[in-house]
Design a binder for these strands. Structure first.
Lengths: 352, 352
DNA sequence: TGACTTGATGAATACGTAGTCATATGGTGT
DNA sequence: ACACCATATGACTACGTATTCATCAAGTCA
């Protein structure tokens, strides 16, 4: 009522044409002063910037994008839940800004929304897309990739056949953990996975089973049901009731592991003296004194860096590329350090 | 080398003109079929969509934005660290997508980058901006607001005088916690803040001090130095060495509180029997069995909803508005429940 | 039936920038 | 002094869509 229903109360937009008039040069020169300074003499450039300052001119990225066919915006599809993703987001945002790019964030709860989200993504003509959610079906990925949008999958090894992919070396990491458990005297080990159908779960389990099998240790699999604390907590309940309780539990992710630890402790077990626990991911909380979890620390910034490089240089070389990064084994309080060596005692160990 | 240096290997872009030709209507009609369907007959609309499907046409949001002067993109400036922000981001992203808008994410570590980030923001002609970082100076906010960009501050009460703001009712929440502590028999309480100069800290401390003072309980202030686990852990070290150790510690945020709890426990104290602890925020981890922290649970989705409403309807009514939301007091294991009532025993209590 | 309204469509243009082409200027080599 | 070249700049146009404005068909009312 009061303000006559104009939802554009913005001051008159200042354009490069206005700056051109103010500084006495052509519009083309104004543009060049910003995007191709080497084509403009120092004197003219100064003149332009002064005029721009006076008028409060800021180049319009939308118009630039329309003309140049580049938005300088990278999209990321990230699961709505999960402690793991915080680090990914901040690392990605920062590294992109450092390259003059921006991050458009998508997340969704129900998979029904995926198509809607992908449609929105296509509309924005992004320069690239990072898929960090395992909830997207291969056909959907394929269809999106066919629009010519460069896509890189992040920590989603299953997508490797479809689009370039970056992930931690799940199998090697899991092997390293398993071997260390054997070294610490574990004779019976249980693997607690998140969701058995995910490639991440499969690789981590395979690595564990192989390493343990090679040492004559069996490794049954238990599915927590999701990659959450609660799922781990419930799994712990089942573990407590097992007849032949294992020496150690290898958990597919740190967040699940926290739930497992709390559940075991609440059930009266001593971690690590009654039962050892390992995680995977290297969340900040893993190093908190309350958990002090033995885990594999992924270097998220490094993974993100590889992802961005793959995305931006996606036109060079063959389309399909896979990068696997090693993780650092950090041995902490959730293991009994009966047998220690200089290499292992609270020390980092490259697994890759 | 191999692929002749074209970084635009995308298929020929399909435009509304192509669809127009394919479907035998004008370009204007194609546009209308998408953005003003009521202006197009059902028959024509079907014809257009069929042709679009055949060609794989997707409207170009960049061109639309240029013409319509609306990007449908909301920006958010969020601190790079802090467990708290994960929930904010996912809630914001989801609620925006539900309104047909997208989220452009900005985060930064050093405050030197702020100006750079703000410049990028201005270039993109966003429809609105959510400031969730306390590290932005008022002059910078003011300058950005003067461009006509609608801004709302999120959980940053200090910005209230400058831009509309949404935050949890820090003072009332803190009072509720304090009163409950008194009710539980606390006679000496220490307040551990994050950074004393932030408005959030000040309000939470003021609420606590007032409620405690009214009950004849003193409330000294200790500064942890940052809103992190590590800062809390260190603060715990100081608390342990205090001569007159308090009955209870009120901590300014959950994340700091986790550090305090772990620090106290590692120092041999029993929480809550030797010393009680409360938090603030209601992080998911607060309800984990390992901490089971008594805290104030902010309803992030509600806060975000208010924020978005304020942002989108920012042209109606006076520019300056402040919304304060109540939080839910959740009493858990970090308190001695010596005296309990039906209201308090592991129950929620509205504080607003 | 003629004047008039409503609904559906096409033609034309503007949004603000970046790149192409053409032009002008000053300096270099012989 | 002439041809030549590198540098600096301006005029012009295209990017793909949304929004006038104009047009035309199909009703509607008296």
């Amino acid at each position: 009522m009061s303000s006559r229903g104009s939802n554009l109360n913005r001051p008159k937009a200042v354009t490069s044409v206005d700056v051109a008039a103010e500084s006495g040069v052509s519009q083309a020169t104004v543009t060049r002063a910003y995007s191709s300074p080497h084509l403009v003499s120092d004197k003219t450039q100064a003149k332009v910037f002064e005029a721009a300052d006076r008028l409060g001119y800021v180049p319009n990225a939308i118009a630039r994008s329309l003309k140049s066919q580049r938005t300088d915006i990278i999209g990321a599809v990230v699961p709505a839940q999960g402690e793991y993703w915080q680090g990914f987001l901040t690392a990605t945002s920062q590294q992109l800004v450092a390259k003059g790019k921006q991050l458009l964030l998508f997340s969704f709860v129900s998979t029904d929304e995926v198509d809607e989200v992908l449609a929105a993504i296509r509309q924005y003509r992004l320069d690239g897309l990072i898929l960090a959610s395992a909830n997207i079906e291969q056909p959907q990925i394929l269809r999106t990739a066919q629009t010519g949008l460069p896509i890189v999958a992040f920590n989603q090894p299953a997508a490797s056949g479809v689009v370039p992919s970056v992930s931690v070396d799940n199998k090697a990491g899991s092997q390293a953990l398993a071997e260390h458990l054997v070294f610490q005297g574990a004779r019976t080990v249980l693997f607690v996975g998140g969701m058995s159908h995910t490639s991440t779960d499969q690789l981590r389990y395979r690595g564990a089973a192989q390493a343990l099998g090679g040492n004559g240790v069996a490794c049954p699999y238990m599915e927590a049901g999701s990659y959450t604390y609660d799922a781990g907590f419930k799994a712990a309940g089942q573990i407590i009731e097992m007849q032949d309780r294992p020496d150690a539990v290898m958990v597919a992710s740190d967040e699940i592991a926290f739930g497992v630890i709390d559940g075991l402790r609440l059930g009266g077990l001593d971690v690590p003296n009654d039962i050892m626990v390992t995680g995977f991911d290297g969340l900040p909380q893993a190093s908190w004194a309350g958990y002090d979890l033995t885990t594999l620390v992924q270097s998220t910034p490094v993974l993100v860096e590889q992802t961005i490089r793959l995305l931006i240089e996606s036109d060079s070389g063959p389309a399909e590329r896979i990068a696997e990064s090693p993780a650092d084994l950090v041995v902490s309080g959730t293991l009994r350090l009966g047998r220690t060596t200089n290499n292992f005692e609270r020390n980092d160990l490259k697994t890759g």
